[in-house]
Design a protein around this nucleic acid. Structure first.
Length: 489
RNA sequence: GGCCUCAUCGUCUAAUGGUUAGGACAUGUCCCUUUCACGGACAAAAUACGGGUUCGAUUCCCGUUGGGGCUACCA
């Protein structure tokens, strides 16, 4: 049984890079009828963000990536857990890490280190100055283990370090990169247990992945350098090593690692701006993976079907918002009017638009193909509910002049008044108004431009017949009469 | 500095020894058209560089250059 996991650290909100990592882990698990687990790695108490866990869960839920095991968001919105291998939050697993570190200590595979952080900093500075590789010098390795244990138990401040072999090589095969090898002498004696009693990432991740029976570790490329340390821990415990896939990083437009400074990185930011989860997911899925065909639009279900690590690339990908915008437009375009109202509800209400209005669905349909994000919708459809105050000059078509408009509009209003309610739909209106223009010898533009401006009050807007249908006969006539009035002033 | 790693249009990418190097986004032009958007057509746009191997390299090997990651009692 294949089991993958996403193990974020709540040092902030869910990052779009994290979303992609979670997505790939989820896809791989689902594709292989396996399970997807979510674990919270909160061993860094200094960078802990209070609502980080909540945001990570909410963002994943929003995207449709739901864990089978581990920390979950319950229906009520509360944070809960499912599975037999819990707890799934590392801060609740401290006794477990203590037990395993003691095993390593007693077997001579780890040792207590009493060095102060000042000494460590100094050591690093000296090494850097001499252009030597940095790393622990092994000073505390010389202390007799029994004596060290006594000192530690007496309460002396200390950490536990991994005893890394200083010769030989560590080789492993990454699912994306193939064989990668490291010289052991260059691998540091990594701290396993910090002086505050918490494990470091490197120790907790190995213990938990083993205990939670993870078969495939899928994570960002920034972890690849730490793999030798992790493998050494597996070796000391004689544990089976999971398969690993290190994903290429997401990049800023200048190709540096995707960062907050150069734009939005939290999934939350995109959600708030009105990007659809389907679009964001489709977009990030294609950052580093592609199906090898020309199909571009993929639902989560389809991604599960076609996802394959053999098609995941090795190069970092720029997070290109223009492409995301295109995806979002595609998804918005395919929404029904009802769905669009429902999804854009919060933005509509925020702007004071009544989502219960009888014409809301029709109003929304006017702009469906014109907006990029849901947050643009209220501003775009506002003119339907409240005509903007426009200048009469706007009523003049570029190929016409003010005299012609003044001549056409009043008689046009009279004609519109003769159109019956039963014919009040865009097709019939188009036909009747077209015929009228032709019979009177007016060009389409000289009639339709002022009509459209009179109805929308805007230089750019949907077509006049669609707007007229949404507005209804009475409001259409009101707006036309107002235009006539504007012209006569 | 050391270690690891990557390298096809501006961007996301396809093509693993033989293609006019394909697609998408963005850009430009045109068509549609009352405006905007949609849609359609067309255009411009790439194998980082230098050596090999080979009849033949985007593709395999070596080097150079450039980018990125790591180098914490952070993840």
């Amino acid at each position: 049984m294949i089991k993958t996991r996403f193990a974020p650290s709540p040092t902030g909100y869910l990052h779009v890079g994290g979303l992609r990592t979670a997505l790939y882990s989820y896809l791989f698990a689902k594709k292989n009828d396996g399970k997807f687990l979510l674990r919270i790695e909160d061993t860094d108490r200094e960078r802990y963000v209070a609502d980080g866990v909540k945001n990570i869960l909410e963002s994943l839920f929003w995207a449709g990536i739901v864990p089978d095991e581990g920390v979950i968001q319950e229906e009520s919105g509360k944070i809960g857990e499912v599975g037999k291998n819990g707890p799934y939050t590392q801060s609740e697993r401290l006794p477990i890490y203590k037990k395993y570190s003691e095993q390593l200590l007693s077997e001579g595979h780890a040792y207590y280190c009493f060095c102060t952080s000042e000494r460590l900093t100094q050591l690093r500075e000296q090494q850097t100055a001499r252009k030597m590789p940095t790393g622990y010098d092994g000073l505390c390795l010389k202390i007799d283990p029994t004596e060290a244990k006594t000192r530690a138990e007496a309460g002396e401040k200390c950490v536990v370090r991994l005893k890394m072999p200083k010769s030989g090589e560590t080789v492993f095969t990454d699912m994306i990169r193939g064989e990668v090898r490291f010289k052991n002498e260059l691998v540091d004696d990594q701290v396993l247990m910090k002086s505050d009693g918490y494990p470091t990432y490197h120790f907790a991740v190995v213990v938990d992945d083993h205990l939670m029976e993870i078969t495939h570790i899928i994570r960002g490329e920034e972890w690849i350098s730490s793999v030798p340390k992790h493998l050494q821990i597996y070796k000391y415990f004689s544990w089976e090593v999971p398969q690993m896939a290190h994903l290429p990083l997401l990049l800023n437009p200048d190709k540096s690692k995707l960062s907050k400074r150069q734009g939005d990185v939290a999934v939350e930011d995109y959600r708030k701006k009105g990007y659809l989860p389907e679009a964001l997911l489709n977009f990030v899925a294609f950052l580093g993976w592609n199906p090898g065909t020309e199909k571009e639009i993929y639902s989560l279900e389809e991604l599960v079907q076609d996802f394959d690590f053999s098609k995941v690339g090795k190069t970092g990908a720029v997070f290109n918002i223009e492409k995301l915008d295109w995806y979002n437009k595609q998804y918005i375009k395919n929404l029904s009017n009802k769905e669009l109202v429902e999804k854009a509800k919060s933005w509509l209400q925020e702007t004071g638009i009544d989502v219960k209005s009888e014409i809301i669905e029709k109003a929304v349909s006017l702009e469906r193909e014109r907006i990029t994000t849901l947050s643009e919708l209220p501003e775009a459809i506002k003119f339907v509910f409240e005509l903007p105050n426009y200048h009469s000059d706007l009523l003049v078509w570029k190929k016409s002049d003010i005299e012609e408009v003044k001549k056409i509009l009043p008689i046009f209003v009279e004609f519109v008044d003769t159109i019956g309610i039963q014919d009040w739909n865009k097709e019939t209106l188009s036909q009747k108004i077209g015929e009228w223009s032709e019979q009177n010898g007016f060009s389409r533009g000289s009639v339709l431009w002022p009509l459209r401006v009179a109805l929308s009050g805007q230089e750019n807007s949907p077509g006049p017949f669609e707007i007229a249908e949404v507005l209804g006969k009475e409001e259409t006539l009101n707006r036309l009469q107002l235009a006539v009035k504007k012209l006569s002033i």
